[in-house]
């Protein structure tokens, strides 16, 4: 079966700097794929390489079953792209901007464009230079969505969007996946990816750290239990329990980070005057840091 994206030892050097190193990645059709990493990890370099804006030092990329360099122009008929740090033409209105790109694509369905503008609450009559960065981002998103691409590549798409628009945007991403189309979402906003992605890849210093299903990542992740006792409790009570990574105790309040099942932990806690208990769900932020710690150590 064709994949949406395949990269094979994709590598990009800028002189001495190795921006991307032997990246092997496969993205399935119809999934929302999160691509995570801190600033400077190589996310944008990877995206610009598979879009043929920059050329790999070695390695190849295949999009929708076709070589990304050889079929670059043809592929762009089926790909929508939102660059990170989006810049548009300041003297054009939103609608003029979209018309320009639509003309380059040989036309788009304008009722769909208007529908997108409605959903994102975007005013297309204003000149780009008079738009806030969030409103500019909306024009960029409509531009990426408007030709109903089979593969959407979005580099840090939520920057500047307010929470309500972000929700709408995430709903749009899920709809696209439901239609069998693919979304490749680069972000360092982990919560955003967590809500919409099926799988994520984590990249660091140009190297792929891990590719996992979100659910697996979460079960592997370190979670936290915040407990309040009716009497002062010592941290040493919990430190020897299997799976516990870290304990912070402040007289009657104890916060325990652990992995795996919480049975043993609860058993010890119940032996004392436990008043309140709060399980803090693992978020990608912690998972992210876990993987980082692992690769560093």
């Amino acid at each position: 079966m064709t994949k949406a994206i395949i990269t094979d030892r994709l590598t990009k050097h800028y002189g001495e700097t190795q921006a991307l190193i032997d990246l092997d990645l496969e993205v399935e059709l119809g999934e929302v794929f999160g691509f995570l990493g801190p600033n400077g990890a190589g996310k944008t370099t990877m995206i610009r390489t598979i879009l043929d804006l920059i050329y790999p030092t070695y390695g190849t990329a295949t999009l929708l079953g076709k070589d990304s360099h050889q079929f670059a122009v043809e592929l762009r008929n089926h790909v929508g792209y939102l660059p990170g740090d989006l810049e548009l033409y300041p003297t054009l209105t939103g609608r003029e901007t979209l018309t320009y790109f639509a003309n380059l694509r040989g036309g788009v369905d304008w009722t769909y464009v208007d529908h997108l503008a409605d959903r994102l609450d975007s005013d297309l009559t204003k000149k780009v230079r008079d738009l806030s960065s969030g409103n500019k981002q909306k024009v960029g998103l409509i531009q990426a969505f408007m030709n109903k691409p089979d593969l959407l590549i979005l580099d840090e798409p939520s920057s500047g969007l307010d929470p309500l628009v972000q929700q709408e945007f995430q709903a749009m991403l899920r709809e696209i996946a439901a239609e069998g189309r693919t979304v490749f979402l680069s972000s360092h906003t982990l919560s955003e990816v967590e809500r919409v992605a099926d799988r994520v890849a984590i990249i660091r210093h140009g190297r792929l750290v891990v590719v996992e299903r979100i659910d697996n990542l979460k079960t592997k992740a370190i979670r936290r239990l915040d407990m309040e006792f009716g009497e002062p409790v010592s941290a040493s009570l919990f430190e020897s329990i299997d799976g516990v990574r870290n304990v912070e105790a402040d007289t009657t309040r104890v916060s325990v980070s652990y992995e795996g099942a919480m049975k043993d932990l609860l058993h010890v806690a119940m032996g004392h005057d436990l008043i309140n208990l709060e399980s803090v769900e693992a978020d990608l932020e912690e998972i992210f840091l876990t993987y980082y710690r692992d690769t560093e150590s």
């Binding site: 610009r48 879009l51 043929d52 804006l53 122009v73 043809e74 762009r76 008929n77 790909v79 929508g80 792209y81 660059p83 740090d85 989006l86 810049e87 548009l88 033409y89 790109f101 380059l104 694509r105 040989g106 960029g140 531009q143 990426a144």
Partner: peptide, 14 residues
């Protein structure tokens, strides 16, 4: 320099 070339080349133009 104005970073609009990426967008231009995201369209099917050589």
């Amino acid at each position: 320099e104005n970073r609009t070339m990426d967008l231009l080349l995201a369209n099917p133009v050589k």
